[in-house]
Design a binder for these strands. Sequence first.
DNA 1: TTGTACGCGTTATCAA
DNA 2: TTGATAACGCGTACAA
Lengths: 341, 341
Amino acid sequence: MNNKKVLTIYDIATELKLSPSTISRALQDHYSIGKKTTEKVKGYAAKHGYKPNGVAASLRNNKTKTIGVIVPWVNRPFISSLISGIELGATESNYNVIISQSHDNYDNEVACATSLFSSRVEGVVVSLSVKTKDFSHFDRFLNSNIPIVFADRWTEEIHADKIMIDNFKAGFTATEHLIQQGCKRIAHLGGLLDQKIYRERQLGYVEALKQNNLPIDERLIIHNLLSAEEGFKSSDILLDMDERPDGIFCANDTVGVSTIQNAKKRGIKVPEELAVIGFNNDPISLIIDPPLSTISHPAKEMGLLAAEQVLKRKEGSESVIRTETIILKTELLARESSIRR
Amino acid sequence: MNNKKVLTIYDIATELKLSPSTISRALQDHYSIGKKTTEKVKGYAAKHGYKPNGVAASLRNNKTKTIGVIVPWVNRPFISSLISGIELGATESNYNVIISQSHDNYDNEVACATSLFSSRVEGVVVSLSVKTKDFSHFDRFLNSNIPIVFADRWTEEIHADKIMIDNFKAGFTATEHLIQQGCKRIAHLGGLLDQKIYRERQLGYVEALKQNNLPIDERLIIHNLLSAEEGFKSSDILLDMDERPDGIFCANDTVGVSTIQNAKKRGIKVPEELAVIGFNNDPISLIIDPPLSTISHPAKEMGLLAAEQVLKRKEGSESVIRTETIILKTELLARESSIRR
DNA sequence: TTGTACGCGTTATCAA
DNA sequence: TTGATAACGCGTACAA
């Protein structure tokens, strides 16, 4: 068993007959240390494989150079891209990223927050668990001046920066697009209304109908967890109706794809008999035949901005805390699944 | 600006007229502390929102309770599931996960290793960058008894645990399946041979041809980065041939899907005129029409096992270092894209 | 230009 | 059952 103790600046100091502080400074190119000494120290360090202990430095500096991330799941297209962006932004400033999953569960989310706080992350990026209604587990960050940035799934109840898209507008745009394509009876497969983003998408849908003098039929609005399975179940209900919809606005692409598959299985023609639009622009939206119209969702940019926002906040030490809300642009990606004319 | 200093055990000690060590022990339910005292301390801590400083504990204990992860990219289906599994396994043992991306770039990979070592992670899970040929940046971990576990993409040059699938066998199985479906002229769209896994898949392909007395035609073997774009380009070459293949074994599903799309665009019938099989069982494989045959790749299990393996290694302190190689089962998922009879 | 001494917050050892 | 003290490795004010 290898019990080689890791080399520290003390060891180097002893060996080089210098003081630890000189070593510490030399390694950081401190101006006060002579060039010769600096080189000698660095040379020795390199040769003997000195590796700084970040933990000790963190404790001393009260800076961990780490950003914490709390997301519902990591293995979803949108979120893995979000994380990729966060990692990118963090790395640019030499920050590390600790990720944790809430599995869309409140208790887990609290545990994640506790753990990240214990790790003394310097900031957190959060995408809320779907049913979180109490937010006091985030107070500890605010109380310690650790910036929180919400990405995508957010809440108004915490005074923190938010990066999001305009879900209302996107829902409106998607629905209006279906109307423009001649749909008269448009359904909505939405997410659980616990989450603001799904409420907003639905409100946009409703508003588009209203503005176009189309009736709002509660039976045409179904909420679920937006998984493929639930997409099938919910589209079953819609497609089984005597008077079935001629257009469906789905709150994500997973459900949009399921809907198309379900329609195809039943011999319902997409888009002629049923126009479908999804949300997110996941890879699958381009694989399904016909390609699924959708709303672009700039996940990676969102992650990048979130990381940058966290780091920017750290700088600030004003007496007034003002929060920023960054709204990223989305685009309607009209593809075959909804284009009728 | 909120300059509230964070509560420490010293503060509690002063307040409660006890010693810091008593506070520390009480908070950990140490047997030597009286029940009354313990409760008093915990009560005070809870009431005043004491939050332990994990950094200090890490320094003192020489244990960070953190696993580092180095992967080429996080936003790919296989890898995001791998990470999900790692996170799961880590959380079970109260470990955190720091992720870093190499972007399939050697220099980045070295930087990731340096950073993780500085963070004093207690173990690392690595999926190698595609072109890494020098592995000395991992030596620091071995020298400090920090376990390395390779997941999926590995090397023989480092004496460490590996979790993988049998790529040779999988390649063999996939190819044999095409042969059984009556294919006579089978191509291979493979990954860069720098990576062992792609070499193995190709070897399996070659062996299957050999065993079935089919000729090996070098022109039918193309290597690329396995992106959708490259999949199109490479399948263009194959489908443009005078004597074009009647079956293609693709080294991932991205390329498999591109191949199907390309064939459909050209009016080539899948699977009748061209049977296609991919690799990984990504979500897209079930979305494309016809559904893409593929090889299952248990990403999440792999991640879970990797985390568990890291934690298991930490325990061991034997004088002999033996490494384990864990091979996960894959399955042939024969779907429409390759079933001809 | 270099060295001394202390503190970051926690825990383990030893003593009381 | 509790307390005093040292130590983890580093960085920095202050002294030399």
